[in-house]
Simulated assay, not measured.
Amino acid sequence: MQFSLWLALLGAGTLISLTPGAGAINTMSNALNSGFRRSIWGILGQQAALLAHIVIVALGVGVLVAGSPLAFTVIRFVGAAYLVYLGIRQFLAKPALDAESAPALSHDPAWSMFRRGLWVNLLNPKAIVFFLAFLPQFIRLDRPMLPQYLIVAATVIVVDILVMWFFFALTARSLQRFTGDARGQRVVNRVFGVLFVSVGVLLAVIH
Rank of each mutant, 00 (worst) to 15 (best):
Q2C: 03
Q2S: 08
F3E: 02
W6P: 00
A8R: 12
A8K: 06
L9N: 09
L9I: 04
G11T: 09
G11F: 06
A12G: 13
T14I: 11
T14V: 11
S17V: 11
A22Y: 04
G23H: 04
G23E: 07
I25P: 09
T27W: 08
S29C: 11
S29R: 05
A31Q: 03
S34H: 15
G35N: 09
F36R: 07
R37N: 02
R37E: 05
R38F: 13
S39I: 12
I40D: 02
I40W: 03
G42T: 10
I43N: 11
G45F: 13
G45W: 08
Q46P: 06
Q47P: 02
A48S: 11
A48W: 10
A49E: 06
L51I: 14
H53D: 05
I54N: 03
V55G: 04
G62R: 10
V63W: 01
G67M: 07
P69M: 00
L70C: 00
F72Y: 14
F72D: 03
I75V: 14
F77V: 10
V78K: 03
V78G: 05
Y82M: 08
L83A: 02
L83S: 04
L83H: 07
V84L: 10
L92I: 10
K94D: 05
A99D: 12
P103S: 06
A104V: 05
L105P: 08
S106M: 05
A110G: 05
S112H: 12
R115D: 01
L118H: 05
V120A: 10
V120T: 12
N124D: 14
N124L: 12
P125T: 14
I128V: 15
L135Q: 03
P136K: 00
P136S: 01
Q137A: 09
I139E: 02
L141Q: 11
D142G: 11
Q148N: 00
Y149F: 15
Y149N: 07
A153S: 15
A153T: 15
V156E: 11
I157L: 15
I157H: 06
V158M: 13
V158I: 14
V159A: 09
V159G: 11
D160K: 08
M164H: 12
M164P: 04
F167L: 12
F167H: 01
F168I: 09
F168H: 13
F168L: 11
F168Y: 15
L170W: 09
A172P: 02
L175T: 10
Q176D: 03
F178C: 02
T179D: 03
D181Q: 00
A182Y: 02
A182K: 07
G184Y: 04
R186A: 06
V187R: 12
V191E: 07
F196E: 07
S198G: 06
V199G: 02
V201S: 00
A204Q: 01
H207P: 00
